[in-house]
């Protein structure tokens, strides 16, 4: 019996062998930890410069006086699938987007997509929105709606929200924030 167990244990050296002996393993772990610390530091620095550069980009390219951000969200309990969105501003193409599975899931779980950031002059504007997708009964839908909004001096936030109206197709609501 002893011989058999000894063989069993010998097998286990292979099955669950650690990658190196104790002291070597410790040295490797210390080296990995040191590298890990350096990587964490570099990530922090890149995050910092990324934030600074994005702020600069916004200030340079989209000054606050003319800045407008367009967001899209979906009601979380919605049973509608969203395939694409098409937006026109003052009868000109403004933005369009086709969704993949991961993006749609992210929207359904509460994520909000920034569709576009742009410069828009002050005054009254018209936003025409068309969404396409598949309803719960697997029937394709296409919904179009148009909204007017005022743009004053200062950044403007507009949220398009796809809501479930318990009908065969969803609805689009628009909320603006100055």
């Amino acid at each position: 019996m002893y011989r058999a167990m000894a063989r069993t244990c010998a097998a286990l050296t292979v099955v669950w062998a650690v990658t190196a002996s104790g002291s070597d393993g410790d040295a490797l772990a210390r080296r990995q930890q040191s590298l890990d610390e350096q990587v964490q530091g570099l990530k922090s620095e890149v995050l910092e410069i990324d934030q600074e550069l994005r702020r600069l980009e916004e200030r340079l390219v989209y000054p606050s006086s003319s800045q407008m951000s367009l967001f899209l969200s979906i009601e979380q309990a919605s049973e509608f699938s969203l395939d694409s969105v098409d937006v026109r501003l003052d009868d000109q193409p403004f933005t369009d987007y086709v969704y993949d599975y991961r993006e749609l899931q992210a929207l359904l779980e509460g994520g909000v997509q920034r569709l576009r950031i742009a410069n828009v002059p002050t005054g009254t504007h018209r936003l025409a929105v068309t969404i396409r997708g598949v309803a719960a009964d697997s029937v394709d839908y296409k919904v179009s709606d148009a909204f007017e909004f005022d743009k004053a001096a200062g950044p403007k936030l507009i949220e398009l929200r796809v809501v479930d109206t318990n009908s065969r197709e969803p609805d689009v609501e628009l909320t603006t924030r100055q």
């Binding site: 890149v46 934030q51 951000s69 991961r102 993006e103 992210a106 994520g111 909000v112 997509q113």
Partner: peptide, 28 residues
């Protein structure tokens, strides 16, 4: 009932596994 669009934007990225972008946005 998420009311902050920028928090929602960070969620949109994080839910797709884009941790860096999500951290950068939400931290800012």
């Amino acid at each position: 009932d998420l009311r902050d669009l920028y928090f929602g934007e960070a969620l949109f990225h994080s839910l797709q596994g884009e941790d860096f972008t999500a951290i950068s946005r939400l931290d800012a």
